[in-house]
Design a binder for these strands. Sequence first.
DNA 1: CAGGATCCCCGATGATACTG
DNA 2: CAGTATCATCGGGGATCCTG
Lengths: 132, 132
Amino acid sequence: MSTTQERTEEQDLPYDVFSRACPSRGTLEHVTGRWGALTLGALHEGSFRFNELRRRVDGVSEKMLSQTLHALERDGLVHREAQPTNPPRVDYELTALGREVAERLIALIECLEGRMDDVLASRERYDARVRA
Amino acid sequence: MSTTQERTEEQDLPYDVFSRACPSRGTLEHVTGRWGALTLGALHEGSFRFNELRRRVDGVSEKMLSQTLHALERDGLVHREAQPTNPPRVDYELTALGREVAERLIALIECLEGRMDDVLASRERYDARVRA
DNA sequence: CAGGATCCCCGATGATACTG
DNA sequence: CAGTATCATCGGGGATCCTG
């Protein structure tokens, strides 16, 4: 297998997110988008109903959550389980594919959360340098 | 234990991206943003000059690349090495922290690229279902 | 409760021109 | 080459109202 070092030598990969036209770029944006990432992250912890999810993903509006869930469901990352009861009950959970993706996303998020002190320190240094 | 939040075993983490006010959310957006993710992905392959990077990240404008690089540099993920020659030469490369983050990001991207066939298949099923 | 439909605004983004 | 400055735009995204 090709080394991960030289992407230039991976010409045989059918999908390349670095190419403007590749559909993988769209999916990447769904996954890493403002609300997509947080939604997948939340669903990684279990199954949730719409409004549970909305409270979990602090700040998301109904519209954006709905829209985000649709995009993720369409991409096959999220499964929507609706029960035709009254009042309605709908549960969302990750698919197998969704779990794979969320796993990587969580790793990224936790890495970031764990390094925020460094990030904030870097910002202060940067701002001090620029102010001069 | 906790009543509202059940972030499994990480209750003591000082930074929580799920909270609207947490600065980690901003950094996550720099990292996973439209151009941030691709820029980090490109820089994971080595050191690049401004216009090299611009060609690599297909579709990015000068302004957005510049802006993205500034944000990543400020967060301490990217190092900018400028040589006061004429014509000027500036190289960008990941910092140690940037490599850690990029590593996770690459894992996510490659996971996605490798599963795009499933994603596209899921989309077709979804669209067919909706069309009915 | 789970969302769809609408209105509307502001900020992200692109295009262009200019500079050291 | 490596950007910055400026202007115009387009759609992401919030607020609100409505329905099954």
